[in-house]
Simulated scan of single mutants.
Amino acid sequence: MLSNFKVVLVETSHPGNIGAVARAMKNMEMFELRLVAPKYFPHADATARASGADDVLRRAEVYTGLSEAIADCQLVLGASARDRTISWPTVVAREMAERWGGAAAADQNVALVFGRENSGLTNQELDLCHYLLRIPCNPDYSSLNLAAAVQVACYELYVASGRQHRSGVGDQGEEPLASAEQMEGFYEHLLQTMADIGFLHPERSRSIMRRLRRLFNRAQLDTKELDILRGILRFSQNHNAK
């Protein structure tokens, strides 16, 4: 779905930035990179900074001018952090993704144009854009690294397209969550153990147990975790009995 978005870099000075952009794009499953008159490309620094996104670099197309690079695009968004004396229609990255990142705009080519590292896009280049693309950030320090700006825009598109992949961490989700009945058995066991080891004062047992219930209910224990906790309680009771 994101294949209709083209990342266009204009006169990039440092080849490492091209590689970093390729890496940022591949993170978000975007692969269409267009380069307008890069100072150095191809280059070993670009390959090194791509860090595995060599396929994006190999597919990158090089153009002599911006007009040529966006000729097949129906929508062109020019990224800029600088304020302009002339007013352009403006859209922020999240709004851009919400408006054009879904299936409704999948039939049109969209260019995301990023300018030079030191000076961005010229007014003449922005004349070729339908919208000025802004990334909200600290007004006192609004200059984003080129790859960082591309990463933010691509991330917003990735999220808007619904392409997030839930990552599994360790054994998360392998064990079923503890049932209400199992949790009640645990709370009874916990209350009895605290009384056995002399931790619980009878007058404060209700308020303490209420807080402990809130704590463990927030944790949403699975059955394996509950077994571990009850094992600790049994050990404490046995140790105290000796």
Rank of each mutant, 00 (worst) to 15 (best):
H201N: 08
Y155N: 02
L200C: 10
P15Y: 04
G162I: 02
I232A: 05
A71N: 06
G16P: 00
A111W: 11
Q151D: 05
L133H: 06
A97K: 04
A93L: 05
H239D: 04
G78C: 12
D127C: 13
Q164E: 14
A93V: 15
A79E: 02
N145H: 02
L212H: 11
L226N: 06
P139I: 08
V7G: 01
Q172K: 14
A195D: 04
D196I: 13
V7N: 01
S143V: 15
I208R: 00
Q237V: 15
R213A: 06
E184H: 08
R116C: 00
M25W: 06
A104V: 10
R213Y: 08
G198V: 09
R163I: 00
K39Y: 04
G173L: 04
H43W: 04
R206H: 13
G16W: 03
L233H: 08
T90F: 06
P15A: 13
D54C: 00
L112N: 04
G120R: 07
W100S: 02
L200P: 00
A44S: 14
S205V: 14
E156Q: 13
A111Y: 09
E95V: 10
I197R: 05
P202E: 11
A180V: 13
K242A: 12
Q237D: 04
C137N: 11
E68A: 10
S142M: 11
S161Q: 11
P139M: 07
A103R: 15
L66Y: 09
R206Q: 15
M209Y: 08
V110E: 03
F199I: 08
A97M: 09
Y141L: 01
M194L: 15
I208K: 02
F41M: 01
A81W: 14
P38K: 12
F235I: 14
A48M: 12
A149M: 07
L146V: 09
A79M: 11
D171N: 13
A48R: 14
R234W: 08
L233M: 10
R206G: 05
E98A: 15
D45L: 08
D54R: 05
V150M: 03
L144T: 06
L157D: 01
R59N: 12
S3V: 03
T90A: 11
M1C: 03
E29V: 02
M194T: 08
N118M: 09
R218L: 05
R116Y: 01
N109T: 03
R134N: 00
I86E: 13
R163C: 01
A180I: 09
L146C: 06
H239F: 14
A147Q: 02
M28S: 03
Y63I: 04
Q74D: 07
A103Y: 11
L35D: 02
A46Y: 04
R211H: 14
Q151F: 07
A104Y: 00
D55R: 02
A93Q: 06
S143R: 08
I228D: 02
P176A: 11
D83C: 03
M25E: 01
P139L: 05
I18K: 01
V110P: 07
R34T: 01
G198M: 08
R234L: 12
Y155H: 12
V152Y: 06
A219R: 13
Y40S: 09
A105W: 13
Y187S: 03
A195Q: 13
S179N: 07
A71L: 10
M96Y: 13
I197C: 04
A111S: 12
Q124F: 07
M1W: 04
L233V: 10
L190E: 03
D140V: 10
D83R: 15
L190P: 00
M209Q: 07
Y63E: 02
D72V: 10
N240P: 00
W100K: 06
M30T: 05
